[in-house]
Design a binder for these strands. Structure first.
Lengths: 244, 244
DNA sequence: ACAAAAGTGTTGAGAATACACCCATGG
DNA sequence: CCATGGGTGTATTCTCAACACTTTTGT
């Protein structure tokens, strides 16, 4: 094992690096035609590398916070919200152009659409909408800074994968939701339609949902509201990710 | 986004941290009864935190190397070998006791058992076996330094998972191997016996193996030798991990 | 009554499993 | 020739996608 003493010099010669944390934040929002769109917030860069380009929200890791905490803080600073789901994605050791060495740790998160809507509405009322932050269609992004396009692509792949064997789509929904809600969100993530009958069977054989006695009454037959069963979390994830 | 200037001070006040890379290195070795055992090399610590305890091999990230390269180097320094498979596992942001902040990035790797055997034999001949390095049964470890027990546990879970839907067991075998070899390695990873007939069907419907015209002649009917088909790699992994 | 969504039942195709059976070789 | 592992065939079970069908509401 290589052991180096921590020296104090202006140039980056030894093992000191800076750690950045970025987060791909997904939520399902409605477009002009009221269609659900898988969306993510981006930040416009205001300084040199890639100035003016859109980038993933992020920041530097503080000395006294954990990686997860840094991701949450980043997310709060950008959207003012707490994630309903947060998972580490990958660590990138860029050796590029930068004068100082940077290691970038990427997280991905889900936000409940109702909270996003409320927050955006509040900002609109108080006229304090954050500058340089905008929501984009995750499947139709402009050219981003750094390799952020690839990162989003990978995250999207991971999300689509995970929605198949795990039940995380509820992370985009309020506490209580109908199966149609859950199915619509899942369809938005996957980009294809699902059979309502089979979808119902899959979720209720997986024991991830608790039926309530409440119903949503709409223009047709009322739909039962469900609630997420938090006791399932441990089994389906790995030993480490369950720490979140 | 928070931007901080890089200052030079003796204490860790700002965003500078050190990045360590550790690797869980798996190989299948034979015990005294010639039974295959999923094994990994550990290093005995020679300094203070957890002095004397066994730990995962690792080292500090150099300023000019990528994360993957650092993992490979670490692995070479410990075992003198190149991995047949290398994948990033997780980044840990320990905020503990340490005076300087450390972020630890953990990889896991597979080594071909024939190369390990050759290397160990060479060391034995030249009497230069590395000090403080020993192979352990991955399923029966002593109390390790830091949280390395949990990390190995998670890696083991990941490996067992992956051996189910992907075909990575070949990473533990020589270029040419019989289906019995591959099955034995898979059984060792999973810790349970598999049906030879069904195992055969599964691998040859997955198109990951190329049959050769060579056979291994033993005490019974000769078994056909197979070779791994490298063209499959791209499809089964995610966009990013395929960079390895 | 009717349109439309909620919810149930049925069927068929393909994958996973268990296991019976034949093949080829060294002793 | 026979014990043993290599290799094939087949029946059973299970999961999953497709879709017909019944139920319940608002209009």
């Amino acid at each position: 094992m290589v052991i180096m003493t921590r020296t104090c010099e202006p140039d980056t010669r030894d093992t000191d690096v800076r750690v950045a944390v970025s987060t791909v934040i997904f939520s399902v929002r409605r477009d002009a035609h009221d269609e659900p769109v898988l969306s993510l917030p981006l930040v416009r860069r205001t300084r040199d590398p890639f100035e003016g380009r859109w980038a993933l929200p992020g920041g530097w890791l503080d000395a006294q916070e954990s990686l997860d905490a840094a991701a949450s803080r980043t997310l709060a600073e950008t959207t003012g919200l707490t994630p309903s789901y947060l998972e580490q994605l990958y660590a990138f050791g860029v050796v590029d152009r930068s004068p100082t060495r940077v290691v970038s740790i990427v997280y991905w998160a889900l936000l409940r659409s109702d909270e996003v809507d409320a927050q955006v509405a509040a900002h609109a009322r108080q006229d304090d909408a954050p500058e340089n932050v905008e929501w984009f269609d995750a499947t139709d992004l402009p050219a981003l800074a750094f390799d952020h396009n690839e990162i989003v692509e990978y995250t999207l792949w991971r999300l689509r994968n995970k929605v198949g064997y795990s039940r995380i789509a509820h992370g985009l929904l309020p506490d209580e939701f109908t199966l149609a809600d859950l199915r619509e969100v899942t369809e938005t993530i996957l980009g294809r339609r699902l059979d309502p009958a089979n979808f119902r069977r899959q979720v209720d054989t997986s024991d991830t949902l608790i039926p309530t006695e409440r119903f949503r009454t709409g223009s047709h037959r009322p739909a039962r509201l469900y609630r997420y069963n938090r006791d399932v979390e441990l089994a389906e994830r790995g030993p480490l990710t369950s720490r979140l």
